[in-house]
Computed example of a mutant assay.
Amino acid sequence: MIDAAELAVPSLLRQDLPAVVDAALGRRGMVVIRAQAHSIIQPGANMTTGGLWRIQGTAQQAGPANAAEPVPFSVIAKLTQSPLLWPGIQAVPPEFRGQLAERYPWRTEAQAYAAGVSTALPFNARMPEAFRITELDAQRILIWLEDVDDDGAQGWSDEQFAEAAFVLGGLAGSPDVDACVTAVPDATTSRRLEFFLEGVGTQLLIPAIMDDDVWRHPVVAGAADPAVISGLRSLAGRAPDLVNVLVALPQFPMHGDASPQNLLAGASNVGDEAFILIDWGNFGRGPAGFDLAQLLAGRVNDGDMPGSDLVRLAPLCVDAYCNGMAEAGTEPDASSVARGHAAAMAVFTGLSALPLDQLAAPRPGLEDVVAGRLDMVRFILGRLDALGL
């Protein structure tokens, strides 16, 4: 129950809060005496995330005169929503809006928590504990989660990258996780790869790459040379063939958005060190090695790691991913993993290497970010050539 009006919390969160606090604290009959919600992302930043809040406060055990000592709590509330509720939907022509909603399932994350994916993950990985899942209406679901907060992508060593790749390989090779994918009605399939290319790839990214204006922009021009420009344009032309490669590869369970920012440090269910994997909205099946693309690109995209580091890290991660698959009971095909990683990185990272949404009002340091991303493009082009893709 809620005992006081000291609740700086959005109204849609208030009804669930007492039960969530009980679950988070492992007690019954707690009275929320203070709570404040802090928004973690900007509204509209993500098409299928209507809000993400950290709610912190104190609660007391119900009893005579509330004599018990107040206990602090901190939980996460994530509002997933239909793309039709996205503020930017007005920019989408009305005749395409239904197609957009169909192509971007928004219930996947809630379904993944409900399917028990966490208990199927490798021993050194888990999901945050889900305290409650509430379907608010036909277009919104509220997911209440354990608060796991760390620096995410900051300061990873080569060993940590390899450990994360091992976890992702274990996820891919696990029959138990594969059974969970089957239990998720809106699980991602390889069709989403095609949707990406047919949509934002063809409509926005490839036209910008082929145009000269973006390469003349002061933020881009200093890091771009004729070889990387022609290479990225060639990649844009080959993107449909690379998507066909990805669709044809063996399909395995995948997290779907496995950047370092979504692999947090924490404890496993038995107390050992583990990765806690968040943001499961793209969970499903995809090509072998797919998750390695985001694992290796995430810190480069944010400007926290040089693109040139990928030359050293990629072989370590491919090997660790294969070892994780084998540990989970699936014989890996190292060639398929390498091809899946390279092609996925080409399509999803190479085509989006230029920060088109930031060029109109560049922030300080964006030139360095672009330089790192173009070094990543050089790495991608080299891997494609080496693999004959």
Rank of each mutant, 00 (worst) to 15 (best):
G340N: 02
A338M: 11
F348K: 04
L356C: 06
A343Y: 03
I380R: 10
L384R: 10
R192F: 14
E194G: 11
A153T: 05
A344G: 12
F290Q: 14
I76C: 04
G256Q: 06
W86C: 05
Q294T: 02
G155Y: 02
R285M: 03
R373D: 07
L204N: 03
F166I: 01
L12I: 13
G329E: 12
Q61R: 15
T108Q: 01
N262S: 07
Q61D: 04
E6I: 02
S82K: 08
D385S: 10
G222E: 14
A110Y: 12
E198C: 01
G284C: 04
E367S: 15
Q36H: 01
W280A: 00
A179Q: 09
A361E: 15
V92L: 11
L295F: 02
A338K: 09
V214P: 01
W156Q: 07
A165P: 05
L389W: 05
P362K: 04
D137H: 01
A183I: 02
L374H: 01
E109G: 05
E6T: 08
A164D: 06
A179P: 00
I133A: 06
L310I: 14
R103N: 14
H255P: 03
A338P: 07
D176V: 05
V31K: 03
L246R: 00
G231H: 09
P43H: 08
G152N: 09
E146I: 09
D213Q: 13
Q154D: 11
K78I: 07
D291F: 01
T48L: 03
P93F: 04
A224T: 12
Q36V: 05
V247A: 10
G169W: 09
R126K: 14
E109L: 01
M345D: 15
R34T: 13
G266F: 04
A67H: 13
D22K: 07
G222L: 10
A221G: 02
G237M: 11
E367N: 13
L205Y: 15
T349K: 13
R103K: 14
Q60N: 03
E102V: 12
A227Q: 12
S352N: 13
W53K: 06
A125N: 08
